[in-house]
Structure formats: structure tokens, C-alpha cells
Computed example of a mutant assay.
Amino acid sequence: MADPTPDRFDRRFELAATVLLAIAAVATAWAAYQSATWRGQQASAGSKSIAARVESTRAANLMNRQAQIDVALFTQWIDAYARDETELANFYRKRFRTEFRPAFDAWVATRPRTNPRAPLSPFAMPEYKLAAGATADRLEATAAALSQRAGDFIQRADNYALAGVLFAASLFFAGISTRLHARTPRTIVLGLGYTLFLGTVIWIATFPVNVSV
């Protein structure tokens, strides 16, 4: 003898459970995909941050070497100038680096030998600027910004991973509800599944979406 036809409640319940199973499965896959893509973005930003810091360190090292050259030549010039060895002083002066000369000329113009308010050396002059130092600062700022972006991407990936867990939980409730026989427990469990699913959908709607491949 054939089984009796399910009543209207059972048909509607099965439909509701099937719908939740389907959309929760898709949502779980979507959340996992988004988490993976943001992890990829984080890795890319992290790599760029490291590269920028490496270049910043190189520029800073170059700046330090250039400053050492400037200090060494200036020290030799001071010694020669103090001994009134004009030819030797001019010898060192001609070998000043291009970036150092504006600061040196501006410092000399302050008459440091007779002006007690003159800066102690050309290195205290605002004209003393090293391009390598500016490059190092710019690259360090870039590295810091990329590092911050990488941190943001990690948080987004973690958020999507958590959303995937919540979607999977709603999928679990939907599956369990079909195994129950009493109407009240079935309804409560399926209702929990839908509540969890809809709450997660509302939360995940606030997330940025990455569709890169």
C-alpha cells in the first residue's frame, strides 16, 4: 500500500529546509572564496611592504654614506682653513658633493667665524638635504601604508572565514531539522537556521567584496 501524501505543513517545511540548505551551501562557498581572495590580497600587500622597506633601508644606507663623505670632506676643509692652507682648503672644497654645496655656501654666508648666532656647521642648515634621505622616508611611509593595508586584508579574510562558519552552522540546522519528526522541534531548529543565516547575511552585506582572480 502506498505511503500517504504528506500534509501541507510537511510539504512547506521540506521546501523551506531545502531552500535553506541550497542558499546556505552557496553562501558558505562564497564566504570561503572571499576569505581566500582577501588572503591573497594580504599576501600581495605584505610582499610589497617588505620590498618597500628593503628599498627604504638601501636608500637610508646610501644617505648615511653620503653624509659620512660630507662630514669627512668638511672636516678636512676646516682643518686646512684653520691652518690658512688656502690651496688645500680649495682642494677639499672642489670635492664637496653637489648636495652639500648649497648648505656649505649658506653656512659660510652666516659668517660663522665672527657670528656667535651662526649654526655650528653646514649640517645644521635647512639647505642640507639629501635626496636619498627623502627617498628613504617616502619608501618607509609606503611600506607602513602597505603594512596597514595587509592588516586590513587579514581582518577582512578573518571576517569572511567567520561568516563561512556561521553559514555552515545554519546549513547544519537545516539538515538536522529534516531528521526530526515532531513539528515543534523541527520548526524551532529550522527557525534557528534561518535566523543565523539571515543575521550573517545582514552582517556580511557590510563587507567589501573582492572579485579578483
Rank of each mutant, 00 (worst) to 15 (best):
A168H: 03
D105N: 13
P126C: 15
A143T: 02
P116D: 13
A161L: 14
A124M: 14
N115G: 14
A109Q: 09
L171A: 02
S121M: 09
L130M: 15
R111G: 06
A169L: 10
I154Q: 09
R138M: 08
P119A: 08
L139Y: 00
D137S: 12
E99S: 14
G164Q: 07
L162E: 01
Q155W: 12
T142S: 05
P112L: 07
A168E: 05
I154R: 05
E87I: 04
A82K: 12
A169D: 04
A106C: 14
A124H: 11
A143P: 00
E85K: 09
F153G: 00
W107T: 06
E87K: 09
F153P: 00
E99L: 10
A124R: 07
E127Y: 04
W107M: 13
R101Q: 12
F123L: 09
L88D: 07
A136E: 06
L120W: 06
K129M: 11
R93C: 05
Y160W: 14
V108Y: 08
V108S: 10
E127H: 01
R149F: 00
T86R: 15
T98Q: 13
K94E: 15
A163H: 02
N90P: 03
R101Y: 11
D152R: 08
F96Y: 06
A124I: 02
Y81A: 12
E127K: 04
W107P: 02
N115W: 10
P102D: 10
A143M: 06
F153I: 02
